[in-house]
C-alpha cells in the first residue's frame, strides 16, 4: 500500500521532468541533427570546425577556466576563514557573501558596466586624479571580472559546507602528529574538501562557459563567446538548426569536463 502511494507522489516530478527537461533536450537533438527541410544531417554539428564558431568556443573555455580558478583561489581561503570563526560571527560573514545572490545577476553586471565604462565611475575617478584613463570595458579581463563576481558565492558555499563538516579534532590530530599548517592544509583539509570543490567548480564552470549575458554587457559585442554565437543563431539568424547543433557540441564539452571532475570526487557529499 505504502509503496504504491509513494510511487504516485513522484508523478508530478516525472511529468515536470518530461515536459521541461527531456522533451526540450530531444527537441535540441532533433533540430541539431536536421536541416531546415527536416532531413537528417551532421552539418550543424560539423560547423563547429569553422573558425568563426571554434574560436568563440575556445575563448569561452579559456575565460571560464580562468574565472573558475580565480573563484577557487578567492573562495577557498575565505571559506577556511569562515570555518575558523565561531558559528554566530561566521554565519553573518557568510551571509554578507551570499547577499549579492539575492539580487538579479544581470543587474549586478549592469552595475559593473557603469563602473568600467569609458566614461564610467572608475575612469572618472582616475581622470579627477589626473591619472590616465584605462581601457577597461569590452576586454576579456572585464568579462572574467564579471564572471568571478557573479559566480563567487557558488564556489564559496559548497566549499564552506564541506569545510564545516571536518571535525576540529581531525585537524588537531594532524597538528598533534607534527604537521605544520601547510602540511595540514595539503594533506588533510584540501583532500577532505574535494567534494565541495568539485561542486563549486561545476557550479561556476558550467554557467560561465555558456553565458552570453555577461559577454554581451561587459564585452560590448567585441568579445564573442560560444554563448553569443548560439544566441545569435537563434535570435538574429533564426537558424535553430545551427544553434542547436552548436549547443550539442557545448553539451558534450560540459559532460566531458564533468566526467573528468567526477574522477576526483568520491561522490559522497557533493551538492551536484
Amino acid at each position: 500500500m505504502k509503496s504504491k502511494g509513494t510511487r504516485y507522489l513522484a508523478l508530478p516530478y516525472i511529468v515536470w521532468m518530461c515536459g521541461f527537461i527531456v522533451i526540450p533536450l530531444l527537441l535540441v537533438l532533433y533540430y541539431g541533427l536536421t536541416d531546415r527541410s527536416g532531413t537528417f544531417t551532421f552539418d550543424n554539428v560539423r560547423k563547429i570546425m569553422l573558425a568563426e564558431n571554434f574560436r568563440p568556443l575556445y575563448l569561452a573555455m579559456g575565460l571560464s577556466a580562468v574565472s573558475t580558478l580565480l573563484c577557487f583561489l578567492i573562495a577557498f581561503p575565505l571559506a577556511l576563514i569562515l570555518r575558523s570563526r565561531k558559528v554566530g560571527k561566521g554565519s553573518f560573514v557568510a551571509f554578507l557573501f551570499i547577499l549579492p545572490m539575492w539580487m538579479n545577476s544581470l543587474l549586478r553586471i549592469l552595475a559593473w558596466q557603469t563602473l568600467l565604462e569609458r566614461k564610467g565611475v572608475i575612469n572618472g575617478i582616475l581622470s579627477s586624479l589626473h591619472l590616465p584613463e584605462q581601457h577597461l570595458i569590452n576586454t576579456p579581463a572585464a568579462i572574467v571580472l564579471g564572471m568571478v563576481y557573479d559566480f563567487l558565492p557558488f564556489m564559496i558555499l559548497p566549499i564552506y559546507n564541506t569545510l564545516i563538516k571536518i571535525d576540529d579534532n581531525t585537524i588537531n590530530a594532524a597538528y598533534d602528529l607534527g604537521a605544520g599548517f601547510r602540511e595540514t592544509l595539503l594533506r588533510i583539509i584540501l583532500p577532505l574538501s574535494v567534494p565541495g570543490i568539485v561542486s563549486g567548480v561545476t557550479m561556476v564552470f558550467v554557467p560561465t562557459l555558456t553565458t552570453f549575458a555577461i559577454s554581451n554587457m561587459l564585452g560590448g559585442g567585441k568579445v564573442f563567446l560560444i554563448g553569443n554565437v548560439i544566441e545569435q543563431e537563434f535570435m538574429l539568424n533564426s537558424n535553430w538548426n545551427l544553434g542547436s547543433g552548436l549547443s550539442l557540441i557545448l553539451m558534450v564539452f560540459i559532460i566531458m569536463s564533468m566526467a573528468l571532475l567526477s574522477r576526483y570526487d568520491n561522490g559522497e557529499d557533493a551538492i551536484l
Binding site: D167, N169, T170, N172, A173, L192
Partner: peptide
C-alpha cells in the same frame, strides 16, 4: 582524541 579523529 575523544572520537578517535582518524583521517577518513
Amino acid at each position: 582524541f575523544q572520537k578517535y579523529a582518524l583521517f577518513p
